[in-house]
Structures are given as C-alpha cells and as structure tokens.
C-alpha cells in the first residue's frame, strides 16, 4: 500500500520534466541544471511507472533498480532543492528591485491605497501575509516535500528488503546472468542496470 502510494505520488511530481521541456516551444531557454533536472525526471518517471505497474507482482531485479534509482533521485532532489532555492531568491530580489517589474509598477497604487482603505476595521495590507509568513510557508512546504521523499524512500527500501527475504522472490542466478546477445541495445542496458542493482541490493539488504 505504501509503495503504491509513494510511487504514484512521485510519478505525478515527475511529470514536471515534460512540462519543463515543453517550455522550449514557447521560446524559453533552459540552463544546464534545468536540463539535468527535467531529463532525470523523465527517466525516473519511466522507472517508477514500471515499478508501479508491477507492484502486486514485483520482480526483485526491477524493484532493486527502482530502489537505487529512487535513492539516487532523493539525494539529487536535496541538491536541486538547495540550488533552485538560490535561484528563486535571486529572481525575487530582481523582481522587487527592478523598476520595470510588475511588482514595482503596481506596488505604488496598492500600498498607498491600503493605507486609506479599511475593511471591517483592519487595513487591507494586514490581509496579505507578511514576509516572514511567506518565508515560513515556503520553507515548510519544501521541507514537507523532502521529508515525504525520504519517507517514501524508506518504505521502498523496506519493501525491497522484505522481497529479498521472502522465499517467493528468490532469484535464480541464471536469470541474472542471462544471455543478452539477442536483445536490443536499450534492453541490454536496462537488464544490465537491473542486474547490477540486484547485486548491490543483495549485498546490503539480503
């Protein structure tokens, strides 16, 4: 249940990769870090989707691959969260200080009006969140997203560990060392990645 919910929620979030790349069609340029983020999102979306579709009949190699991908993705997400936080706060400074920005263009009218107008005994400016509140919710939501990610990671880790210890999911070594000559290139890479993940997970979890 936890694996299904965790993977499903993560997959929904990974759709951002498609929309980030779709932005190219509107003439928007992506920087290197955005390219990395969106391409990894698309790749992980494929891996997690494979995991979700087999959640009731899991294959140990596939789930070992999902686990390692998810774990690496969690670490990368932590890094990206810090990186793009810096990007946002830089962009915000620019928005607040640039005379041609929408904020500067409209703030005069809004702030002077808010001093004059009152709503039920309160100034209108008090109806907007303070800067401290904005920061608080921004940090809170970011932290909740990160904590949820770690939580889902641990759920998947526990699931794979139990798969390793369950007799039904014992893997025949011949399956791991199967002949790959007649497979397509991407299939060979995929199976090799799964098998490598299986060996790594077997070493630490079995």
């Amino acid at each position: 249940m936890g694996v299904e919910i965790g993977l499903g929620i993560t997959i929904l979030n990974k759709c951002s990769g498609f929309y980030g790349i779709l932005g190219l069609l509107t003439g928007h340029q992506l920087d290197f870090m955005q390219w990395v983020l969106y391409l990894t999102s698309v790749f992980t979306l494929v891996v997690y989707s494979l995991g979700l579709t087999t959640v009731y009949k899991p294959k140990l190699q596939t789930y070992a691959f999902v686990l390692l991908t998810f774990t690496a993705d969690t670490l990368i997400t932590c890094f990206f969260t810090l990186w793009f936080s810096g990007m946002w706060f830089a962009a915000k400074e620019s928005e607040l200080s640039d005379p041609s920005s929408a904020t500067q263009q409209t703030s005069g009218g809004i702030s002077s009006g808010s001093k004059l107008l009152t709503a039920r005994g309160e100034t209108l400016s008090s109806q907007s969140a303070s800067q401290a509140t904005e920061y608080f919710f921004t940090i809170l939501v970011s932290l909740i997203a990160l904590v949820s990610r770690f939580y889902f990671n641990f759920i998947i880790l526990a699931f794979v560990q139990r798969l390793f210890r369950h007799p039904k999911y014992l893997v025949d070594q011949d399956d791991v060392d199967q002949d790959l000559k007649h497979k397509k290139l991407w299939q060979r890479w995929w199976i090799r990645a799964e098998n490598w993940s299986y060996r790594v997970c077997h070493h630490y979890l079995a």
Binding site: N13, S16, Y19, G20, L22, G23, T26, H28, L30, M33, Q34, L37, Y38, F80, T81, F84, S85, M87, W88, A91, K92, A119, R120, G121, E122, S126, Q127, S128, A129, S130, T133, E134, F137, T138, V141, S142, A145
Partner: peptide, 29 residues
C-alpha cells in the same frame, strides 16, 4: 468576512514551484 480569513500568500507558490520543479513552469507555458 475578511477579518476571519487567514492572510493571503503571494510568494509561496511561485517560490515552491521554482524550488521543487526548477522554474516557474506556469509562467513559461
């Protein structure tokens, strides 16, 4: 009534969008 409503946040959502998804996707699209 406005006095019973919580204060409105303006920056939280664009901030979260950039932090979690790398850009203001809604602006770009």
């Amino acid at each position: 009534e406005a006095k019973h409503r919580p204060p409105i946040t303006v920056q939280v959502l664009p901030a979260i969008e950039t932090i979690l998804y790398g850009d203001n996707l809604s602006d770009i699209l």
